[in-house]
């Protein structure tokens, strides 16, 4: 059980690294486009497509599993904190089960749409060029699957009382998240 948690945590770490790289790439890509346009009258073709259809989708959907592991999803605990431990833990398991159910819907619907877009070889137009975007649709079911895996592992670990292998303490300054 602990080993499963460790491997899951490793996958989350990898997703987090890829996402962080995309944050940096987004910055560099847009800055290069601005510089190219302003200084050399030569904007980078496809910047808005790359930013919207790739970086944004990766930064959000690959990261929802990371946020789940580190409990960064925003929730309201003012009422549950008034409860004694036991009912509070029951509600916590309930909330995670709801999360799993909802994200499963997201995963399935994301998957069916990705299949359609792949069959279509979906593209987006920017300027006079076309850019393929169908690949990016797969990031939604992939990210959702990671989030489900993390949440399901947490429920099982909580209910069985097993030692969790997840890395739940976020790095420094988690409270800066807003």
């Amino acid at each position: 059980m602990y080993q499963i948690g460790r491997s899951l945590s490793w996958v989350v770490k990898a997703a987090s690294f890829v996402g962080a790289i995309c944050v940096v790439l987004m910055m560099l890509h847009v800055t290069a486009d601005v510089a190219g346009r302003y200084l050399f009258n030569a904007p980078l073709p496809g910047t808005t497509v790359w930013v919207a259809n790739y970086y944004m989708i990766i930064v959000v959907f690959l990261a929802i599993g990371v946020a789940e592991e580190q409990r960064s999803h925003i929730s309201v605990d003012v009422f549950t904190d008034l409860l004694p431990d036991r009912p509070r833990n029951v509600l916590s398991v309930f909330a995670t089960l709801v999360t799993i159910a909802v994200v499963t819907v997201l995963m399935i619907s994301g998957y069916t749409e990705a299949v359609k877009k792949t069959a279509m070889t979906a593209t987006k137009e920017q300027g006079s060029q076309l850019f393929e975007v169908w690949q990016s649709y797969w990031l939604i079911p992939a990210g959702a699957a990671l989030m489900i895996a993390v949440a399901a592992y947490r429920v099982i670990a909580t209910v069985t009382g097993a030692r969790s292998g997840l890395n739940e303490a976020p790095p420094e300054a988690n409270f800066i998240n807003d």
Partner: peptide, 19 residues
């Protein structure tokens, strides 16, 4: 520091946009 800033950006963006 650079990577910490990027990771925090990532998690915050995901938490905000899912809402």
């Amino acid at each position: 520091r650079f990577l910490t800033a990027a990771r925090e950006t990532l998690m915050t963006t995901a938490a905000l946009l899912i809402i």
